[in-house]
């Protein structure tokens, strides 16, 4: 289980608390949905889970991943322990070949068990790219450089498929993507939860998500706090009423 408890976040050297006393539990193989209006603190939460150096978490905050306390680990160590966070806007890294990036990434995260050479990673990239509909030759392109919105999101998905995290937090994984891409993303998420027992926290502010993604639990975040939680019916009610009227 990924257990986030008493988790509070603010921007370094500022006073305003952006996320306050968050408690979340993400079980393996389950798909959890975090919804809330823009500015509720959802993205801040996602970034702080990965130790964004610009954010500061309060001393009482805890992140426990399968009984391991990973709260203060560096981002790369969190990745190796099995946590994956997909940020809202995957950043371009000019000139850096995807093949080189994913090769280092794979060997850092999974290397302890199965270190692989450049040819094997290339095979894997090609195989998964085909599955999720990323264009041929993606390995030769640069990280997110010149990618369409949909390609960026699929590239995040490709990394999840390669790195096989135990828990994945996906921030607005559906934004900027077309209908087909969204369908691919959700079916892959559902499949990974089932086959690899990956626990997901999907962050979204759009009700569309409920039509295509089966979710196990829903959390509502407003003004930096988790206000309520419930099942899919609860989520539909909130979206119908609009945020702030629950």
């Amino acid at each position: 289980m990924l257990k986030i408890s008493n988790f509070s976040v603010k921007i370094k050297s500022e006073d305003k608390i952006l996320a306050k006393n968050i408690d979340l539990e993400i079980n393996p193989g389950k798909v959890n949905l975090l919804i809330g209006p823009n500015g509720a603190g959802k993205s801040t939460l996602a970034k702080s889970l990965m130790s964004d150096p610009e954010l500061e978490i309060s001393p009482d905050s805890k992140i426990i991943l399968d009984k391991q306390n990973i709260t203060d680990l560096k981002p790369n160590k969190k990745a190796s322990s099995g946590l994956f966070v997909s940020f809202q806007n995957p950043v371009e890294v000019p000139g850096v070949k995807i093949l080189d990036f994913l090769h280092s990434s794979y060997n850092s995260v999974r290397g302890a068990k199965d270190r692989i050479d450049i040819w094997d990673i290339l095979d894997l990239i090609e195989q998964y790219s085909q599955e999720i509909g990323l264009p041929d030759g993606i390995a030769d392109r640069n990280v997110n450089e010149g990618f369409s919105g949909g390609e960026k999101k699929k590239f995040e998905l490709l990394q999840i498929l390669l790195l096989k995290p135990k828990y994945a937090v996906l921030d607005e994984i559906d934004s900027g993507a077309d209908v087909d891409t969204i369908k691919t993303i959700y079916s892959t998420v559902t499949e990974l939860a089932k086959s690899s027992n990956t626990g997901f926290l999907i962050i979204s502010h759009t009700p569309k998500i409920l039509d295509t993604l089966p979710v196990d639990a829903v959390y509502l975040m407003e003004n930096g706090e988790i206000k309520k939680s419930g099942d899919i019916k609860f989520a539909k009610e909130i979206f119908n009423k609009g945020f702030g009227n629950s």
């Binding site: 990965m50 560096k74 981002p75 990745a79 966070v85 280092s104 850092s108």
Partner: peptide
């Protein structure tokens, strides 16, 4: 942060 979150050291 992006690269580190994918397992690379600083």
């Amino acid at each position: 942060l992006y690269l580190q979150s994918r397992g690379l050291s600083k």
